[in-house]
């Protein structure tokens, strides 16, 4: 099972993913700079990613807490999410997300 990550330089790579992990943790575990300053508590917005349009609709919608933290991202795309709030499951095999510079 994998996620597909486009890093800040625009390079695409497949990352081994494990069920039950937060996407933020998967990205970080592979050595990419994803922020995650608050440790996945939905309290800092530094793990902001843009989800590929094809996948955006397949994720559970952001809850109020996540929406509130997304308010702290100065430039959002319509598919912006906090990667700490996406828990990886089998259904998400191939999930494509893009890392963006976060403040």
């Amino acid at each position: 099972m994998r996620i597909v990550l486009v890093d800040q330089k625009g390079v695409e790579q497949a990352l081994e993913a494990a069920e039950g992990w937060r996407v933020m943790e998967i990205i970080r575990e592979h050595g990419f700079e994803v922020g995650g300053l608050c440790g996945g508590a939905c309290a800092c917005a530094t793990c902001h990613v843009e989800v590929h349009a094809e996948w955006a609709g397949k994720l559970h919608p952001a809850n109020d807490d996540e929406e509130a933290m997304l308010d702290e991202v100065p430039v959002l795309s319509p598919t912006s999410r906090l990667s700490c709030q996406i828990i990886y499951t089998e259904d998400l095999n191939g999930l494509a997300v893009k890392l963006v510079a976060n403040g």
Binding site: L37, E72, P74, V75, A101, G103
Partner: peptide, 12 residues
């Protein structure tokens, strides 16, 4: 900690 807390600057 993670350094100094500073205001986030919009990347405009």
């Amino acid at each position: 900690g993670g350094g100094s807390f500073q205001p986030k600057k919009p990347p405009i």
